[in-house]
């Protein structure tokens, strides 16, 4: 009798632990059946799949600084751009034959037309209030149309390796 009871007890224990096991594994089991993929479905693009790497040369550096009127400041700045270009090179892997470029998600909408009424202006104060320099209600700028002088740039090791 005690043997039967103890065996029953063990079975109960095993059943309990089995059900506990089932419970704990339930998440695992449901994960496996889950609609959510349990492993990453893509991996980062390998370097060798991309086109030839572009490293910007001094001429481009100069050109960009003049176009942007901001400077790279240091080698880190140039490296940052090189990396950004490399990252963007992944776009070449996408087949876009026959695809129209998208300017805006509103490309199928129409431009709103405003009536020809004077509703603005006559707010000289508002316009001038944030200007650091004002002379007799005019904004003030230095003489224009003088391009930036050529600069000696010390950006560390030469970045020119390949010409684009």
């Amino acid at each position: 009798m005690s043997l039967v009871l103890s065996r029953l007890g063990n079975t109960v224990k095993r059943l309990t632990s089995f059900s506990k096991l089932c419970k704990s594994k339930r998440v695992f089991a449901s994960n496996e059946k889950s609609k959510v993929p349990q492993k990453p479905t893509w991996s980062h693009v390998e370097e060798n799949k991309l086109t030839e790497e572009t490293l910007i040369d001094n001429e481009t550096i100069d050109h960009l600084e003049r176009m942007s009127l901001v400077d790279f400041n240091n080698q880190a700045g140039i490296d940052r751009l090189n990396k950004a270009i490399r990252f963007a090179d992944q776009l070449q892997l996408v087949n876009t034959t026959g695809v129209e470029p998208m300017d805006t998600v509103l490309e199928n909408r129409s431009l709103y037309l405003r009536s020809d009424e004077v509703t603005d202006g006559n707010c000289q104060n508002d316009i001038l209030q944030n200007a650091t320099k004002v002379i007799e209600d005019y904004f003030v700028a230095p003489p224009g149309n003088i391009p930036l002088p050529d600069q000696e740039r010390d950006y560390g090791p030469a970045s020119a390796k390949k010409r684009k």
Partner: peptide
Amino acid sequence: GIEYGYRSEQALSTHALYA
């Protein structure tokens, strides 16, 4: 820096000021 924003003291040329 002309209409608003930080404006440096640079006065050689417009481009130099902007930069």
